[in-house]
Structures are given as structure tokens and as C-alpha cells.
Design a protein around this nucleic acid. Structure first.
Lengths: 147, 147
DNA sequence: CTTCTTGCAAATCATTTGCAGGGCG
DNA sequence: CGCCCTGCAAATGATTTGCAAGAAG
């Protein structure tokens, strides 16, 4: 209940009415705090939870959440994936075998990026960095070592 | 003519017949060596050049070129953009105002990426880094300073 | 009441695929 | 003749939008 209250407050703060679909979607995103979901994932999770929502609503709500800064959208190839915006910026390492996403933050890289942009005459606003590789689990046992 | 010969050879080397559509598309990509084009851009350029090609062919050829390593595909938001593969790896800075794409390579960042991946237990295969910002021209005069 | 939301179905958009005709070895 | 290649139109898949019915303040 406490969490629901918090969600409710966060939605209001974002200028969004705390409706059931929105609360449910936010809840799902929070439950998957360490994962990254596509709109379809969210939709399926809602159905699995016995909710009655339309795909359109999922897309609409996700877009609203993104504008509100509640979540972060990544354009991954052809689909988009979302993750809860938990404040601290970070970049991603993606396992090309099992799809696992690992987050990291490296100050050296961050600083260097600013330097490079500066040298090129750009005022940097944002950046995205994705490393693609094979995680230990997949490499050694062909099984993902983490969730 | 020399260039056409080279293109022709490159296509053959890639295991693709040197057909007219393919030569034309490769030519357009070369003429735009310093730009980055969407499939639609290429298609329009072909039409503008008086060529008779179908969109499907453009997409097919672009995909073949990518598999052959002749070009590099970037997933940009919802559409894909292509650039000629000129060998050296590099990352990109994109001006969010004028769309200009600037390329760069920074060894410090490259090295650090390997380090980070290693620490996380990943064997890195590839990466993409995009810096988004405002270029000098747009910032100062609201006009793009470069092509 | 008035405004914001939602579900459903139809509409888009970029990209892909099925297919019959062509071109070339 | 057989295979690769092309254009066209139809098919996809993800995401969006129009719209009438429903909630929320």
C-alpha cells in the first residue's frame, strides 16, 4: 500500500491522474526494476495479472511516463524498451546471447565524452552508450548466469 | 569510370552481381560519403537521378550491402540510417538541431570500454556510442555551420 | 458538468515478403 | 534452361490515432 501511495504521488507530481491503468503499469515497471521491458512485455504482464487494458493504453501511458521523466526509453533495433528512471545516469552492456542487460557508470568515459564533444564544437546534451558482448554464463556454459 | 569499376569489383568481392541498381545505390552512398542516409533518402536520390527502382530493391540492396560489410547500419530511433563502411571504427556526435553527424574516435574511451566490460564479465564484441548535442553553428547563429 | 482517460478498431510507417517477369551466363 | 535480380503489390509488426463511452475532480 505504501508503494501504491508513492506511485500515486509520483503520478500526480508528473501531472498525471492516478488512474488504475497507470498505477498498474508503473507497478509492473517497478517490479521489473532490474529488467528492461518492451511495450508488449508490459502489456502481457498486465494481462497475466488479470488486468483489462488495451495495447493502445500501454503505449500511451508509456509515452506519458517518458515525457514525465518517470521512465527511460531505449531504441533497440526495431522495438523500444523501457526502464524505470531511478535517477543516476548509467550506460548498458547487453549480452548478445541471452539478452541480459547490465548497467554501468564510468567516470573516465563520461569525462572523455565531454572533452571529445567540446573539441568538436558541440555542446553535449545527452548520450547513449551500449556495449555488446557475451556474458560469462553464456560463454562458459551456454546458460545465462544471471536472471 | 574508374570509380564505377572499383564499385563493380567491390560488389563482386562481396559476392554480389554488379547490377545497375546496386551500382547506383553504392554510387549514391559514396557521393554522400560524409552524410548518413535513410533508405528513403537513398530511394529519393535514385528517383532524383532519374532511375527506375522500387523501394523494395533499395531495402534489399541496403541489407545485402550491410551483410557484405560494405555499409554500416545505425538504428536511429525508429528509422535506420546507413553510412559507407570506410574501414576505421568511429563513434558519432549528432546535432539535435540540424541533424548533422560528426564522427570521432577516442582511444581513451575505447580502452575504457573494454575495461568496463571485462570487469563486468563480458567479452565485448561491439559497441555504439552516440553523443547528442548542439553544434557551434546552430548554437551561435541558428544555422548549421557545416554541410 | 467538464476534462482527462480508456478500449477498440482503423490507420500509419518503415520495412519485408510473395510472386511473376527479366536478364545473363 | 536455371538462377539471380527486380518491380509491384500485398503482408507485417510496431506504434499511433479517431472516436464514443467512461471515470475523476
Amino acid at each position: 500500500m505504501t508503494e501504491l501511495m508513492t506511485d500515486s504521488v509520483n503520478l500526480k507530481k508528473a501531472g498525471l491522474k492516478a488512474t488504475l491503468p497507470r498505477l498498474k503499469i508503473l507497478g509492473i515497471l517497478e517490479a521489473a526494476r532490474d529488467r528492461h521491458m518492451t511495450a508488449e512485455d508490459v502489456y502481457k504482464a498486465l494481462l497475466a495479472a488479470g488486468e483489462e487494458v488495451g495495447v493502445a493504453t500501454v503505449y500511451r501511458v508509456l509515452t506519458q511516463f517518458e515525457s514525465a521523466g518517470l521512465i527511460i526509453r531505449h531504441n533497440f533495433g526495431d522495438r523500444a524498451i523501457y526502464e524505470l528512471n531511478q535517477g543516476g545516469h548509467h550506460d548498458h552492456i547487453v549480452c548478445v546471447k541471452c539478452g541480459k542487460v547490465f548497467e554501468f557508470f564510468d567516470n573516465t568515459i563520461e569525462k572523455r565524452q565531454r572533452q571529445v564533444a567540446d573539441d568538436a564544437g558541440f555542446v553535449i546534451e545527452d548520450h547513449t552508450l551500449y556495449l555488446y558482448g557475451v556474458c560469462t554464463g553464456m560463454k562458459e556454459k551456454g546458460v545465462c548466469s544471471k536472471k
